[in-house]
Design a protein around this nucleic acid. Structure first.
Lengths: 190, 190
DNA sequence: TCAGCCATGTAATGGGTTACATGATTGA
DNA sequence: TCAATCATGTAACCCATTACATGGCTGA
């Protein structure tokens, strides 16, 4: 006896597709506009490249999850404006409602390097940790600036929550970097 | 005028290849053993699948970064034992010494869902956050157990540092989850 | 008896990046 | 005059995952 496979009426999309659909719930956009919007909103935790984004738009259009209309322009390149359709919205909500959130594997090349720290001298490793810390701090500052502008806007409640995630992760990374730097300096070179 | 391209004597490998080379600096291993070793060491920040690992071993062998010897066994399947070569070690150290550590883009599907939280009801989102929190806590407990056993072993200094990274990140995620849960419950449903 | 360990891999697919391609307009 | 903005995409590639395939031994 075997169980019948689960019937999924909605085809499986990539997460990036859902991200695009999600952004379109805020209004119609061209591919170009979506890219810019993504860069200043979801890019801290989901950063598609423009090639990829254009590709997904084409796919979503074939599936009729988005509708496109062509806009001719004289002084600028023509463009396509996309809007989410009812079935697109349905697919998005289905995805959002699916409670099986896959555990997210962490990937960190720098941590891998630290793991193999015995292979290089201290200064080399220190420089890389410090570089990471510098970069993380820069991003933290950017996020703090955004925080100030959005924290009291009720309609940005959910984006604000995600910003808090970014702040929490960056702070944790910076504190870890401080710990590692201290540990490397304190420890007598073997 | 154009600048001449940078001559890289060492071919570019995937990070997973470097991870494999790194693990081989701790001693010779078969593919199977490497997989197990990876699972209980670097998997928290770099988790290759076995197919991938076997593939990279093959490639590293072609490049002569690892040497393999075939071991025949009667009661078990034959196996190949890999060891890192001098040029393999050199390639690894070159990679470790390269100071340009690429910034690591964060990818979080869950955060993406939170960003689009306006599309689903509160209970749906809450359940997903709680599930993430539960999972993170389980991993945190595992790491804490490992921490107790390795924190005073001087030869595990670098692995310990990476464990601290894992602990820091997990804790940050759990605290963020708590914040979000509270914020969702406090807020009156719009 | 049955799950789990040992041990290796292939094939198919997908998700995503990088490089390449074009070209007018606008503001510093 | 020079960089940036607007606007779209194709082609090549690669890193990685999933599913598939095999089969004897060991211990609960």
């Amino acid at each position: 006896m075997r169980t019948s496979p689960v019937q999924t009426d909605t085809p499986q999309l990539s997460t990036t597709s859902y991200a695009v659909l999600g952004l379109l719930t805020f209004g119609d956009h061209s591919g170009y506009d979506l890219m810019k919007l993504a860069e200043r909103s979801i890019a801290y935790f989901w950063a598609p490249t423009k090639s990829h984004l254009y590709g997904e738009l084409k796919r979503l259009s074939r599936l009729q999850y988005v509708a496109e209309r062509h806009i001719e322009q004289k002084d600028r390149p023509d463009k396509r404006i996309y809007s989410i359709t009812d079935s697109g919205r349905q697919a998005l909500v289905d995805w959002m409602s699916n409670s099986e959130v896959a555990p997210e594997p962490v990937k960190s090349e720098l941590t891998l390097r630290v793991f193999f720290g015995h292979l290089v001298d201290r200064a080399t490793l220190l420089a890389q940790i410090k570089e990471m810390r510098r970069h993380a701090h820069k991003e933290l500052d950017q996020m703090r600036a955004i925080e100030r502008t959005i924290k009291d806007e009720p309609e940005l409640f959910y984006p604000y929550l995600t910003l808090r995630a970014g702040l929490a992760i960056k702070r944790a990374k910076i504190r870890w970097a401080d710990y590692v730097i201290d540990a490397l300096l304190t420890r007598e070179e073997p």
